[in-house]
Every structure is written in structure tokens, then in C-alpha cells.
Amino acid sequence: MVELERFRVAVRTWVAAGVEAPAAAEVARELVARVATVVLVEGVSDRSAVEALAEMRGRDLGDEGVCVVPMGGAMGVARYLRVLGPQGLGARVRGLYDEAEEGFFRRGLEQAGFGAGLSRSAMESLGFFVCVADLEDELIRALGPEGVERVLAAERDLDKFRLFQNQPAQRGRPVERQLRRFMGTTSGRKAHYGRALVLALDPAGVPHPLDGLLPSPRCSPR
């Protein structure tokens, strides 16, 4: 687990600083052979959800060598893919992205040598899955508004949500949109509920992009 964290930090530093981070690049090159799969996600809330899914399924991503890397947004995905992909470290890479960011991921994959003229289904076959419109929407649909409200109640946030619903800007909006907006109103709330909502799912009702994202548990570090 310590090595996966070192690898994650090294890759993020290398991507951010480029040739000005030779030490980080060297660490990443040293550790990549011990990483079975890198899972690229846009932010920390997505990472929380992916790691919660592994927990729900009794999987230890550290033992499996699966490193979930939040990129801090989709615009940098091309740089990550150049560092990690066939033209760089040659790591096995998968990813999760929002529908609005599909163009960034498609161009990044094509530029990094994963293929040309990639369709959404071709990207999925490479292990890159789209959330419509984003992961919060996928989870809200999977649980239903009442299911999400039960999670809010368990987390002692339901009264706060009721007050939020009463705000003039929220009145009359569909409850699904209110829930999605509520989760983004306080720092750290999206990451907290990324985990809590996943753990509340029926194991048979995991949204498709999240369900398909993790590699087979048979994968192990090279």
C-alpha cells in the first residue's frame, strides 16, 4: 500500500511538473512493475466511490496492485495517458469520466497510442467508462431519491437537505437535481457521499460504469 501511494504521488508530480520532476519520474519508473492497474478518475469523490466499491466487494486494491489516481479534472488526462500509456510507462490503465468530458478522454487515448477514431464502445473495451451525466447522477438513479434520502438521514444530513430544498433557487426543481447540487455545496461532501452512496447500493444494482471499471480480481502486480 505504501508503494502504491508513492507511485500515485510520483505520477501526479511528474504529470504536473514534466521534465522539471526527474526524481518523481524515476520513482514512477521504479515502481510501475509492482502496479497491476492504474485507474484514472477525475476527482477525489470518484476515488472514494471506487475504493468503496472494492470494499463492498471484499477486495483489497492494495494487495491487488490497483492504484486509483484522481487527476484533479479531465483536462489533464492526455498528460496522464502519455506518462502511463504505451508511449510512457506501459502501465495497464483504465478510467472513469463524466459524459461532458468524453472529448478529452477520447483525444487523450488516441494521442497516447490506444487507437484511432475511438467510439464510446471502443473506449469501454479499453476499460474507460462514461458516467451520464456524472457519477453522482449514476448513483442517484441507482438508489432512487428515497434511497439517497435514507443515506442522508443515516449521515444526519437530511434536515440540512430539507432546508436546502426550501431555498428559493431550489424550489420547483426535480429532487434528483436538488440532491446532486446539495452534495456539491460543502467542501468534502461529494467525497463523503461518493463513499456512502456506493456502500448503500444493492450489490446487483451497481451502475454500469462503476461496475465495469475495476479489473478482474485475478489481476496481480507484474
Rank of each mutant, 00 (worst) to 15 (best):
F128T: 06
A100C: 10
G72M: 04
F105G: 03
R162I: 12
A16C: 05
V44Q: 15
M75D: 11
R180Y: 01
R6M: 09
R150F: 02
A196S: 15
A200L: 03
E110N: 11
S216K: 13
L126P: 06
L126Y: 00
R12L: 11
R106M: 08
E64I: 06
V44A: 15
G188P: 08
S220V: 12
A91Q: 04
R195W: 00
G95H: 03
L201G: 07
V9L: 13
V77A: 05
F182H: 08
E124S: 13
Y80D: 06
P86L: 05
A196N: 12
D98M: 05
G85F: 00
G113L: 03
T37V: 15
Y193A: 11
Y80T: 04
P22R: 10
N166Y: 00
G65N: 02
R222Q: 15
L139I: 02
L53C: 13
E146F: 07
G76N: 09
Q170V: 00
E146Y: 07
G58D: 05
A36D: 03
S187E: 11
L89Q: 04
G127Y: 02
Q87G: 14
G90N: 10
D159F: 10
F114C: 07
S45D: 15
G108V: 00
S216V: 06
E124Y: 00
V38A: 09
R195S: 13
A52Y: 01
G115N: 13
F182I: 04
F7E: 02
E55M: 10
G62K: 01
F129C: 13
R6F: 00
F164R: 11
I140R: 05
L213N: 08
A196I: 02
A200W: 01
V19M: 11
Q167H: 10
L197A: 06
N166K: 14
P209S: 11
S119P: 08
L126T: 01
T186K: 15
E5C: 06
L143T: 06
E101C: 14
G58E: 03
L214F: 02
E110I: 05
D202A: 13
E5G: 08
S119I: 04
V9M: 10
F105Q: 15
M75I: 00
T185W: 02
G194L: 03
Q170D: 09
V2Q: 14
R34M: 09
R47C: 09
P215D: 09
A21G: 12
A100E: 12
G88Y: 02
R180W: 05
I140P: 02
G113P: 08
R162L: 14
K160I: 00
A200E: 02
R173N: 13
V27R: 13
Q167G: 14
S119G: 14
L40Y: 04
P86N: 09
L135P: 11
R12G: 10
Q87E: 12
G95F: 00
E138S: 14
R141V: 13
A122Y: 01
R82V: 01
P207F: 00
